[in-house]
Design a protein around this nucleic acid. Structure first.
Length: 270
DNA sequence: CAAGAATCCTGTCAGC
DNA sequence: TGCTGACAGGATTCTT
């Protein structure tokens, strides 16, 4: 969102082009026409959704799904026909911002700005994990009585907003909590560890991922570097960094929970 | 009601 | 080189 705001906030959209009518759901008719000629007045993020406000009172709702990304280039640059570029926004000051989403799990919608919080996709969403209001007591209350593994509970956007499959594994490792543990056992001392672990994981990821969006300005920009900071995700079989040397770490394990990969250290996460 | 499975879609990679 | 199957950063809907 910060990368988009750097190029779009305060700018006038010269032209918006939609090349297909659906992503995860049908895109409202007239969305491109509404963007064209509008000035972008502010940005907001809620969970994994980005909201771009326009003068005139509407907001563009954007979700990148699993495979979506934004490509930012000067309008003057050559465009060797990116595949799966579903929406293109060109600004009056000469930038071209494209939404590229091969799997089309992403989402676009248009809604009145005053109704953002009432939107069906945002209503009922859990607290923002980086807000001061996201405390161990708040997380504990959301998990209390839930007889699902904590891994699955943290992926539920109604419990806490914005955590994905990678960050859940990373946060549980930092907190020393087994992904198999039932959510209802978290309130109390474990929530006291888990909340700061979630905040630290996301703060570091945003710092690293923000750089990737800036790099998108380059034609062959790198995707970012938080993947180099993963402590368990994708590291099955490797030693974790928290086990004492003797005896050595039994190795990071991978398993499937609710259809998603989970990575964890079987010794330090209990 | 809650939890797991199936589902949408395309690209990539391992194995043959 | 080419084919097949498994799997991928998400979230909703269907089953159990």
């Amino acid at each position: 969102m910060r990368g988009l705001a750097a190029r779009l906030d305060g700018r006038v959209i010269r032209k918006a082009t939609l090349s297909r009518g659906d992503l995860r759901r049908v895109i409202p008719a007239g969305l491109a026409a509404r963007l064209t000629g509008a000035r972008v007045t502010s940005f907001r993020r809620r969970g994994k959704y980005i909201l771009m406000r326009l003068d005139g009172g509407d907001s563009l709702l954007l979700h990148l799904g699993m495979s979506g990304r934004m490509a930012i280039r000067p309008s003057s640059a050559a465009h060797p026909g990116e595949k799966h570029e579903h929406l293109v926004i060109e600004t009056e000051d000469g930038w071209r911002i494209g939404l590229i989403d091969p799997r089309r799990f992403g989402l676009l919608d248009l809604l009145p700005t005053v109704e953002e919080d009432a939107h069906s996709l945002l209503r009922g969403m859990g607290p923002e994990p980086l807000d001061a209001a996201f405390t161990p007591a708040v997380l504990g209350a959301a998990l209390s009585g839930k007889r699902t593994p904590i891994k699955a509970a943290l992926l539920d956007q109604h419990v806490v907003a914005g955590l994905g499959n990678i960050y859940v594994s990373e946060a549980l490792f930092r907190a020393g909590i087994s992904p198999r543990r039932l959510a209802t056992s978290i309130p109390g001392a474990r929530a006291e560890r888990l909340v700061p672990a979630i905040k630290a994981t996301l703060t570091e990821a945003v710092a690293a991922g923000g750089s990737s969006l800036r790099d998108y300005v380059q034609p062959d920009g790198e995707l970012g570097y938080f993947q180099h900071a993963w402590k368990v995700y994708g590291r099955q079989g490797l030693a974790c960094e928290r086990c004492p040397g003797v005896p050595p770490c039994p190795g990071i394990r991978q398993m499937t929970q609710a259809g998603r990969s989970t990575f964890f250290c079987p010794r330090t996460q209990r």
